[in-house]
Amino acid sequence: MTANADKIAQAESHFGVRFPADYRHFLATEGSMSRFVPPADDFLMINSIAELIEVNEAGEFQEYFPGSLVIGGDGSREMLTYDFRQTPPPLVLLDVSAQDWSSAVHQAMSLTALLEQFPETGWKWEDTDSSPS
C-alpha cells in the first residue's frame, strides 16, 4: 500500500465510511484543488486528505450533520459535503451556519459529475428536484 493509499484508508477508518471510488482516485492522483473554474468563475476547493479530519472536527458540524463528510467548499462559508446517510452518497452544499440537513443544496451524485458540470454551472444555490432530460 502506498503512503497516500494508507492515508486514505486511515481517514476512511476514522470516519467509518468507504469513500466513493472517484473521490479515492482524486485523492490518490490530484490530492487537492483550490482555484477559480472558468467559464463559471466560481471558486472550487477540495481539501487534501491531510485536512479532512481537522475540517470535519471543527465546531459542532458532526453533531448537526451526522453522516456528513466535508471535502471542500467555495473557499468561504459554503462546505462541499458528502451525505453518507444515502447510498451512494451525493454531494451537497451546506452553509457553515446551517442547523440541519434541510439547508443542504444538492450539487451532484458524484465527484466526477461535479467536476464535469462545474465549469458550466458553478455552484447551485437552490435545490431543484428537476433533472436533465
Rank of each mutant, 00 (worst) to 15 (best):
S131Y: 11
F61C: 04
F26D: 00
T29M: 00
E120N: 13
G75Y: 15
F26L: 01
P89G: 09
Q107D: 06
P38C: 05
F118C: 03
L111S: 02
E63N: 09
S13H: 11
E63P: 00
V37F: 06
D129L: 14
G122C: 08
L93Q: 08
M79Q: 15
L111A: 05
A9E: 10
P88N: 13
Q62N: 03
F84S: 03
P119R: 05
L44D: 00
S48P: 03
E116S: 13
A113M: 09
P90V: 08
F15V: 06
R85Y: 09
P38S: 13
Q62W: 02
D74F: 12
R18L: 08
V37M: 10
N4T: 13
A3E: 09
D74T: 10
M79Y: 11
P39G: 08
R85M: 07
M109P: 03
A50F: 04
K124G: 12
F26C: 01
L69P: 02
G31A: 02
Q62Y: 02
Q117M: 14
A58P: 00
V96D: 12
N4I: 14
W125I: 14
T121I: 12
A108D: 06
Q117N: 13
S32V: 00
T87I: 14
V96H: 14
L94W: 08
G75T: 11
L80K: 04
D95K: 05
N4R: 15
N56M: 02
Q99D: 14
S76F: 13
P89N: 14
G73P: 07
F61Y: 08
S131K: 14
L44G: 00
S102T: 13
F43Y: 15
I53D: 08
P89A: 15
W101Q: 07
V92S: 06
S34R: 10
Q99T: 12
M1F: 05
K124D: 07
Q107K: 07
D74W: 11
V92A: 08
S130G: 06
E54A: 12
A108I: 02
H14A: 07
E60T: 10
S133N: 10
E78W: 14
F118L: 06
R24G: 01
D95S: 12
W101F: 11
H106I: 03
E60F: 07
V17T: 01
D74K: 05
Q62E: 06
L111F: 04
R24T: 06
A98G: 06
P38V: 07
F15S: 05
F84I: 07
E120Q: 15
M1V: 04
M109E: 15
H14V: 05
K7V: 01
P90H: 11
S102H: 09
D83Y: 12
T128H: 14
D42C: 15
P20C: 08
L93C: 15
P39W: 09
V17S: 00
E30Q: 08
E116Q: 14
A108L: 05
N4V: 13
F43P: 04
H25T: 02
F15I: 06
L52Y: 01
S110V: 08
G75S: 12
S130K: 11
E51T: 06
R18S: 12
I53M: 08
V37Y: 03
D74H: 11
F19Y: 10
T81R: 07
E63G: 04
P132K: 11
